[in-house]
């Protein structure tokens, strides 16, 4: 691939500014200013009602010992550690399945993509109903299998445990945080479609060369398809890191703003929201935001570092 030579630079006419300035103003007022302001506020005690008072690093020091913050941090990391790999695995699996020459692929493709189009609030409410431990859809589906054994279906959003089997109470455990993971994985159809598009890009003769070389279907996946998918996987993982660390609406709606039970679904964005707008501790919330930002930046950097060694980029 040849790089097209750049056209010679010409100074834009003055009226060009008329097109650029509105956007620049928006960026300045609604992005850059809050960005800088929140950094400044993170070193103050600021109740919004009174002017901010500088407190130095006190907010950060307090956060490091705040059990609720540490719990929210732990929940957020756990949520990301579960939902990102599971999401990628399932999305790749779906893409592989839809890549097979089966009838009705158009229907299945549409079907797995639809969740992505459902508004967050609507899907949160839909899942509250599906996960209702008394008469929800999942409970009804599991009952016929569990009842004969004398076991109870999971309590989902009302259980603060993770997953497992409770032999004392004879209940399958699938708790609130895993339920959130389930909800996030439900939306992975969009990723699957991207993987599928990439799979369909794999040249036919590579498959044929691999077959002649004696590759079985696992070898083909491992040595032909996965390398081609790897840049898209890296991209999706980075986007998912950024996305999952900002999940707010789903747990907020499904737990009535509590992040319960027992803080099991209390994620960092909820912590920030509560302190900023309920407890009027804007400075404290800003400090937490910056920690969240630092975490996202760090993990993204790590993902890119790993990616550089493991990802195969075509062309370039």
């Amino acid at each position: 691939m040849s790089t097209p030579s750049a056209p010679p630079y010409r100074r834009p006419p003055p009226r060009a500014w008329a097109f650029v300035v509105p956007w620049l103003l928006g960026l300045l007022v609604f992005t850059l200013y809050p960005f800088a302001a929140s950094f400044a506020y993170s070193f103050t005690e600021y109740s919004v009602l009174r002017p901010p008072e500088p407190v130095g690093l006190a907010n950060y020091a307090e956060l490091s010992g705040d059990p609720i913050f540490l719990r929210a941090l732990y929940n957020t990391l756990l949520f990301a550690a579960l939902s990102i790999p599971v999401g990628v695995l399932i999305a790749v699996g779906l893409a592989k399945a839809l890549h097979a020459p089966i009838r009705g692929t158009t229907f299945y493709r549409a079907a797995i993509y639809v969740p992505h189009l459902v508004p967050t609030v609507a899907s949160a409410i839909l899942w509250m109903w599906m996960l209702n431990p008394d008469n929800g859809l999942l409970t009804s589906v599991m009952r016929p299998f569990l009842d004969p054994l004398g076991w109870k279906a999971p309590s989902f959003m009302q259980d603060d445990r993770l997953v497992g089997l409770d032999f004392k109470n004879r209940q399958v455990i699938f708790g609130a945080l895993p339920s959130l993971v389930l909800l996030s994985v439900w939306g992975c159809g969009q990723m699957a479609i991207v993987y599928l598009a990439k799979l369909q890009d794999v040249p036919q003769d590579l498959y044929e060369a691999a077959r002649l070389d004696g590759a079985g279907s696992w070898d083909v996946f491992r040595h032909v398809e996965l390398p081609q998918l790897s840049p898209v996987i890296l991209f999706n993982v980075v986007m998912a890191i950024i996305g999952t660390f900002q999940v707010f609406a789903e747990p907020y709606i499904m737990t009535g703003g509590q992040g319960g039970p027992n803080y099991a679904t209390y994620l960092l964005p909820m912590f920030i929201y509560d302190h900023a707008f309920d407890y009027h501790r804007m400075g404290y919330a800003c400090a937490a935001s910056w920690i969240l930002f630092g975490l996202i930046a760090l993990l993204t950097l790590i993902a890119f570092r790993i990616g550089q060694r493991r990802v195969y980029y075509a062309g370039a």
Binding site: P203, D205, G214
Partner: peptide
């Protein structure tokens, strides 16, 4: 007999090399 057991090797027009290897 599947291709891999036919004891033949094939060279393709577009080379079909594994690009990441």
């Amino acid at each position: 007999v599947p291709p891999k057991d036919r004891d033949i090797a094939m060279v393709f027009q577009n080379y079909a090399l594994y690009p990441h290897m």
